[in-house]
Every structure is written in structure tokens, then in C-alpha cells.
């Protein structure tokens, strides 16, 4: 057990020590993806606004509901970040194969590279989200500070989540397609754009037993309802600990196998 922990920590500490590598690579990744476009990474902002606008105006016809618009704006921001992390994590090690089989960089470097890429993408979406909040007349309140705690929790859960799905993709290649399909379904099974009014049945079960619900609510609830998301933060803590334990176990036992299995 100590050996597993030591192996995992060696990788994680190595990833921290090599932070200049993943910070530089992640930044280059984002700008490379938009290098030949006129608007560059601003497309990330436009994509978010187009997506959020579709939900706000198409799924809720009639006069714009301020509360619903804010609900969707924040929910979509968090969902997109989580969904990008999961779907891109499943083939992360395959994409990084030339690095993994040609350098001694710790696996954490690739995990953090992906995490930071998605944080940068989300940062552009945050601008759009603030724009929607402003247009909808949302008044900043002290409770919003709890959203920052929620953001922090989501960020802390991201790296182990990526580790788990990256290992899954290496040892179960079909999972790349299974997970991307499941995430498409999960978007509709998660209260991103539908509101749970306390009813039971399928919708109630999807709300109560879906871990994504709580990741979204940890950030959204303080802004939408002005309340402290105690239940959501508690659930996130459980989810976060579970992912960290699993990620440490996988890193500690299988990290040396990845170069041979790829």
C-alpha cells in the first residue's frame, strides 16, 4: 500500500515540478487550435454564447425568464468544462503516446495539460456567462463567494477524474466511444437546462443520484438561489475523495504499464 502511494506521489510531485511544461503546452494548444482563424480563441466565447442562447431562447419560448437564463448560463458553463474533461480524458494517453514512449515526463504532466486546456476554454466561457448575468440583471451578492468554493471543488476533482478515464481508455479502448455516447446522454440526464421542481419519478431520480448534478449545483446554487450549497458541496467532497483514491491507486499500480500497453 505504501509503495502504491509512493509511486503515485512521485508522479504527482514530478508533474508539479514540471509545471512549466504543461502550462506552456496547454497555452500553445489553445492558440494553435485557433491560429489561422480571424477571431482566435474568441470562438470559444462565441460557441458558449450560441449554445447558451439556444437553450435560453429555444427551450424556453416566450418572454425571457431571467431566473432560467442565469440557471442555464452557469449550469452550461460547468457542464461544458466537466464534459470536455471526461470525453477528452478517455483517449488522453493515446494522444500523448509519442511523449509517453519517448520521454520520462510523469503522467501527471499530460493530465494537467488537459486540465489547464479546459480551464482556459472555460475562462472564455466565463466571460460569456458574466455577460448573460449582467444582461439579465443578476445582482452580485455575498453568497456568490460560495460559488468560488464550488469552482475550486470542481477544479480539484478534475485531475483525478481525468486520470481515471485516461486509464480506462488505455485498458478498455472501446470506452472512448462508450463514454462519449454516455456523456451525450448525461447532458440530458443532468439538470443543465431543465429545472427540478422537487418532483419524484425518473426526473427526481436523475437529479438525486447523478453526481454531475452536485458539481453543477455547487457553483450554480449560490448565484441562482443565493443560498449555501451544503448538500452539493458535501456530495462533491464524497465524489472528489472517491476519484482521488481511485486515481492514486491507478497511478501507483499501473503508471509504468502505460508505456508498454499503448
Amino acid at each position: 500500500m505504501l509503495k502504491i502511494l509512493s509511486n503515485a506521489l512521485t508522479d504527482i510531485v514530478g508533474g508539479y515540478e514540471q509545471r512549466r511544461v504543461w502550462i506552456t503546452l496547454a497555452t500553445e494548444d489553445i492558440f494553435d487550435q485557433h491560429r489561422r482563424t480571424t477571431l482566435g480563441p474568441l470562438w470559444l466565447l462565441i460557441n458558449y454564447l450560441a449554445f447558451a442562447g439556444t437553450f435560453i431562447f429555444v427551450f424556453n419560448p416566450g418572454p425571457v425568464d431571467q431566473h432560467y437564463a442565469i440557471y442555464v448560463a452557469v449550469g452550461l458553463l460547468v457542464w461544458t468544462y466537466i464534459s470536455d474533461n471526461v470525453t477528452q480524458a478517455v483517449n488522453l494517453f493515446q494522444r500523448e503516446e509519442s511523449f509517453i514512449s519517448g520521454t520520462t515526463l510523469p503522467l501527471s504532466v499530460y493530465v494537467m495539460r488537459l486540465t489547464l486546456q479546459n480551464v482556459i476554454r472555460a475562462a472564455y466561457a466565463v466571460l460569456g456567462c458574466f455577460g448573460i448575468l449582467l444582461v439579465m440583471g443578476a445582482a452580485p451578492a455575498m453568497a456568490w463567494l460560495w460559488s468560488l468554493v464550488g469552482v475550486l471543488v470542481v477544479l480539484v476533482v478534475s485531475p483525478p477524474m481525468i486520470v481515471v478515464f485516461a486509464f480506462l481508455g488505455v485498458f478498455f479502448p472501446d470506452s472512448q466511444f462508450i463514454v462519449s455516447n454516455l456523456m451525450r446522454v448525461a447532458m440530458f440526464a443532468t439538470p443543465v437546462f431543465w429545472v427540478h421542481g422537487g418532483e419524484g419519478g425518473l426526473r427526481g431520480a436523475l437529479y438525486d443520484w447523478n453526481p454531475f448534478t452536485y458539481l453543477l449545483d455547487a457553483v450554480r446554487q449560490p448565484i441562482v438561489d443565493g443560498t449555501v450549497p451544503v448538500l452539493a458541496l458535501s456530495a462533491c467532497l464524497v465524489v472528489g475523495v472517491a476519484f482521488w483514491v481511485l486515481a492514486i491507486f491507478l497511478l501507483g499500480t499501473l503508471r509504468r504499464q502505460v508505456a508498454l500497453v499503448l
Partner: peptide, 30 residues
């Protein structure tokens, strides 16, 4: 080690920028 010429090189970046990237990957300081 030099196993693969293209590891760490970014196609869109200049040679000068690639020196920095490759150096970082090799564990050098800036």
C-alpha cells in the same frame, strides 16, 4: 535521449519557440 526527432516540436511554432519547448521537456530551466 533522442528517440524521435519530432517529440516536443510543434509544427506551428517557430524553431526558436521550439527550442524553449524542447528544452522544458528535457528538464532545463528557462
Amino acid at each position: 535521449a533522442l528517440f524521435n526527432i519530432s517529440i516536443g516540436f510543434r509544427q506551428e511554432a517557430t524553431g526558436r519557440r521550439n527550442i524553449l519547448l524542447r528544452g522544458l521537456i528535457n528538464g532545463w530551466t528557462e
